[in-house]
Structure formats: structure tokens, C-alpha cells
Amino acid sequence: SDFTIRIGDRTLHLKNVSEEILKILEELLRRGIDFEELRKIVEELIK
């Protein structure tokens, strides 16, 4: 499924993301992860 994360004025667009990855990202966001850290993790996950 497609997913968009907005943190402040920044946006991260994800396409064809599995439910498992979404759950991980949601947990990281709940813990207050930094946007740049989140972006790096996402890039690793979707390689």
C-alpha cells in the first residue's frame, strides 16, 4: 500500500509498503524518531 509521512514541513512518500514495514515505521514515529533517521531507515528497507 502507499503511505505518506509528514513531519513538520517535510514529506516522505512510500509506495508498495508492506503492513509489517508500516507497523515498524509507526512504532518509530511513536518513539519520536528524527525525520532524517526515519528517511535513512526507509531507504534501507525499500532497497
Rank of each mutant, 00 (worst) to 15 (best):
E43H: 10
D34L: 06
E27G: 09
S18D: 11
D34T: 13
G32W: 02
F3Q: 04
S1I: 14
H13M: 06
E19K: 11
I21R: 07
K15W: 05
R30H: 12
N16E: 05
E37S: 12
L45Q: 07
G32I: 03
T4N: 06
L45I: 09
T4C: 12
V42G: 06
L38R: 00
E26G: 05
N16C: 02
T11W: 05
E27I: 09
V17F: 02
K40R: 13
E37P: 05
H13L: 06
E19H: 12
E26L: 11
K15F: 08
K47V: 13
K23C: 09
R10N: 15
H13I: 11
L45S: 07
I41N: 10
F35L: 07
K23H: 13
I46W: 05
I7C: 14
F3P: 01
H13W: 01
E26Y: 08
E26S: 07
T11E: 13
K47L: 11
L38P: 01
V17K: 01
R30Y: 05
I33A: 11
I33M: 09
D34Y: 03
E43M: 10
E37A: 07
V42R: 01
S1P: 13
L29A: 07
R6F: 10
I21A: 12
E26M: 09
I7A: 02
E37I: 05
L25Y: 01
R31L: 10
E27H: 07
K23Y: 12
L38M: 13
I21T: 15
I33Y: 12
K47W: 12
K47I: 13
R6M: 15
H13A: 06
E44S: 10
E20I: 04
E36Y: 05
E44M: 07
L22H: 11
S1D: 13
I46M: 14
E44Q: 11
I7N: 01
L29W: 03
I21H: 15
N16P: 01
K40M: 12
L22I: 15
R10W: 06
L12H: 01
E44K: 07
L25W: 02
L25H: 00
L29I: 14
D9T: 11
L22M: 14
